[in-house]
């Protein structure tokens, strides 16, 4: 091969810099271009506009009696709305924050102490914890109990026992009137 054809790369007398420029420029544009071409495909897998549009929901809570819980849907997820009893509020406030795995005071998790609003998704692997119905097991701390891997939450939705790393998340919400809220 070396006898029958001369390799253009083998003898660069003076074209070195121009050839290097071509090589680097083509590589750089190729890499950047590929990255930019991939992005639309990856981003197409992110939530679409219609999914994002479902991102807020209004709930009338006037019919929820003290000690009662309801489950509403927000972004396809269950949201627990609990009208807490004075005993539950007292129990949640009495906990020493330094003892918690994910330290949060009860006051920082509620806007009004009698209304606890949390996303009903276990922070371990995404199951829906039990505790919304009167007959459900509610764990040792009187809140919620996840049947999948045994995580237990207290009356403020904070993780107390089991594999979950975090407290039940508090969604963004606002009291529109004293008896209705908007989540999202």
């Amino acid at each position: 091969m070396a006898e029958t054809s001369t390799s253009p790369l083998a003898s660069p007398p003076e074209g070195e810099t121009r050839r290097d420029f071509l090589l680097y420029a083509t590589t750089a544009v190729g890499v950047a271009g590929t990255a930019m071409a991939i992005w639309p495909f990856i981003d197409s897998m992110n939530p679409a506009a219609d999914v994002l549009a479902l991102s807020s929901t209004e709930v009338d809570i006037s019919h929820v009696a003290v000690g009662q819980s309801i489950t509403v849907t927000w972004r396809g997820k269950p949201v627990f709305i609990r009208h807490r009893t004075p005993a539950e509020i007292a129990a949640a406030e009495a906990v020493k924050v330094s003892d918690l795995r994910d330290p949060e005071t009860d006051a920082s998790r509620v806007q009004k102490p009698e209304w606890l609003i949390v996303i009903g998704i276990c922070t371990h692997l995404g199951c829906v914890p039990l505790g919304q119905k009167p007959a459900d097991p509610r764990g040792e701390f009187g809140g919620w109990f996840c049947p999948c891997h045994g995580s237990q939450y207290d009356t403020s939705g904070r993780i107390r026992k089991g594999p979950a790393p975090l407290n039940l998340a508090v969604p963004p919400y606002k009291f529109l009137t004293p008896t209705s809220i908007r989540i999202g």
């Binding site: 897998m45 939530p47 679409a48 972004r75 396809g76 692997l125 995404g126």
Partner: peptide, 30 residues
């Protein structure tokens, strides 16, 4: 739900990966 949530264990990027896998905020039609 459980298997995709495994990816949420990774720090910082975990939740973004899970949302990307779901195409939403939970396992659903997408």
């Amino acid at each position: 739900t459980v298997i995709t949530n495994l990816f949420s264990a990774f720090p910082v990027v975990g939740d973004y990966i899970v949302t990307l896998l779901w195409g939403g905020f939970s396992v659903a039609n997408p």
